[in-house]
Simulated scan of single mutants.
Amino acid sequence: MSELYAAMDEHELRQEIANLKEKARKAEQLGIVNEFAVYERKALMAAAYLIDPATIVVGEMYRLDGAPGEFFQVDRLKGRFAWGHRLGSDKYEEAIPISMLAPMKVGK
C-alpha cells in the first residue's frame, strides 16, 4: 500500500499492520532476517498512528514492548516518535515509535 499512514483510517491501519506482520512471518520462515526486520519496523510505525500522542506524558517512564525488563523515559515527543533515554543505557538520546511504549502500571 503506497498511502501514507497519516492518511489512513483505523480500519486501514489495522489491515496494513496485519499485512505487514504476515509478510514478516513469511520472511522469518524463509530465513530472510533483514526483510523480517523491515516489515516488523513498518508494522510498529503503522501501529504508532493508532495511538494518540497526547496519551504519552513527557517525563514519564514506560516499559518497552518486546523488550522485557527495559524501560524508557520520554524527554520529548516529535510526531509519532518519543525521544528519550533507556534506563541504564550508555546510549545518548534516541527516538522510538510511540507504539513501543507501554504504561508502567499493569492493567492500563
Rank of each mutant, 00 (worst) to 15 (best):
E22I: 06
E10F: 01
Y92T: 08
D75V: 15
H11V: 08
L4N: 10
R41W: 03
A67K: 07
F81Q: 07
K105V: 13
S89D: 12
G79P: 04
H85R: 06
A48L: 02
E60Q: 09
P97W: 12
A47Y: 03
G59W: 02
L101E: 11
G107M: 03
L50K: 07
L30E: 09
A47W: 02
L64H: 01
M1C: 05
D75E: 14
G84S: 10
E94C: 09
A47L: 04
E35D: 09
K23W: 14
A82Q: 03
E12H: 09
R14S: 08
W83I: 05
E70A: 14
A48S: 06
M61L: 03
N19R: 09
Y62P: 08
M1A: 10
I32N: 12
E12A: 09
A6P: 07
A18H: 02
G31N: 12
E94D: 08
L101G: 06
A47M: 05
Y62E: 08
E16H: 11
A24T: 04
V106L: 07
N19L: 11
K21P: 00
P97H: 12
G88L: 14
A82P: 00
V58C: 02
Y49K: 08
I32W: 11
A46D: 00
F71Q: 11
G107P: 02
E94N: 03
A37G: 01
R14P: 07
A54C: 02
R25D: 13
A82H: 02
G88F: 13
A102S: 15
K105E: 11
F36I: 05
I32R: 13
E10W: 01
K21V: 03
P103I: 08
E40R: 15
E40T: 14
A6S: 15
K105Q: 13
E94S: 06
V58G: 00
A48F: 03
G88H: 13
E93K: 05
E35R: 12
I96V: 15
A48G: 04
M61C: 00
Y39L: 14
S2K: 11
P103E: 03
G66Q: 02
M45Q: 02
L30V: 06
V33H: 13
D52I: 02
G59S: 04
W83V: 05
K78V: 13
L4D: 14
A7W: 12
E35T: 10
E16S: 13
F72H: 08
V57H: 07
L44R: 11
